[in-house]
Nucleic acid binder design. Structure first.
Length: 214
DNA sequence: GACCAGGCACATC
DNA sequence: GATGTGCATGGT
């Protein structure tokens, strides 16, 4: 089967099995971006605790976070792990927004995807996946987000080789699929969902909706 | 107690 | 360019 058909088949199976995922879980583009940094190599449940701490303190905003000390930010995001590193990364992102966009993340939407992606990748602590998550879910740009679950599903189903790079994975989606913001949004979220439920490090392929494809 | 979780920067070869 | 390591909490 052609790769395009395999990918569409996977999407259709997952969408009928799970339905729409309504991503990203967050109230504003800024919260989504902060969540994208906090969830780096981290369980989402822990990230939610950190996000709730920030909201409870009323600092889930550029101005709110920017007036806190590093120590204060670190203490609030502690449940998300790597709190010292992530504090530096959040600080770098705040500096970027204040510097280039007067602290308004919505201002970024006007720019084209390629130059925005390069700018994001230039910020300390923002790599390919975090940049693409911000582009897709906060700025509503049609880029495909690749994460550990996406890689695992595609390698298990022999659509990609295990040693492929981030760009290799992303290229398949951009080359084989039509550019569709809403579909890219749902598809990535569905990969995460099936990854959490079945396509774990220790696979639970038995009742996986994608089991028939193996 | 080991393993895992919606990565990234940096050192080293 | 590929590979190895530190970063850290909380659930299973």
């Amino acid at each position: 089967m052609k790769k395009r058909d395999q990918l569409i088949r996977i999407y259709n199976i997952l969408y009928s099995f799970y339905g729409p995922q309504k991503w990203w879980p967050g109230d504003s583009p800024f919260e989504i971006a902060i969540g994208a940094i906090l969830t780096q190599n981290t369980n989402w449940g822990n990230v939610e605790k950190a996000i709730n701490n920030l909201k409870r303190e009323g600092v889930m905003s550029v101005e709110g976070l920017n007036r806190l000390s590093d120590e204060k930010i670190a203490s609030l995001i502690k449940p998300a792990g790597y709190f010292n590193i992530k504090t530096k990364r959040i600080r770098a992102f705040l500096d970027f927004l204040i510097d280039k966009y007067n602290g308004k993340i919505e201002e970024m939407k006007k720019e084209d995807t390629i130059s925005l992606r390069n700018k994001l990748l230039n910020i300390y602590g923002i790599g390919a996946e975090t940049a693409d998550s911000i582009l897709l879910y906060a700025l509503e740009k049609p880029v495909f987000v690749i994460d550990a679950y996406t890689k695992r599903v595609l390698t298990r189903h022999s659509i990609m080789k295990p040693n492929s790079t981030y760009s290799d994975y992303q290229m398949i989606f951009h080359k084989e699929l039509d550019e569709d913001l809403q579909m890219f949004n749902e598809f990535h979220a569905l990969f995460v969902r099936v990854g959490k439920d079945y396509c774990k490090v220790k696979p639970l392929c038995k009742n996986c909706p994608l089991a028939d494809l193996l």
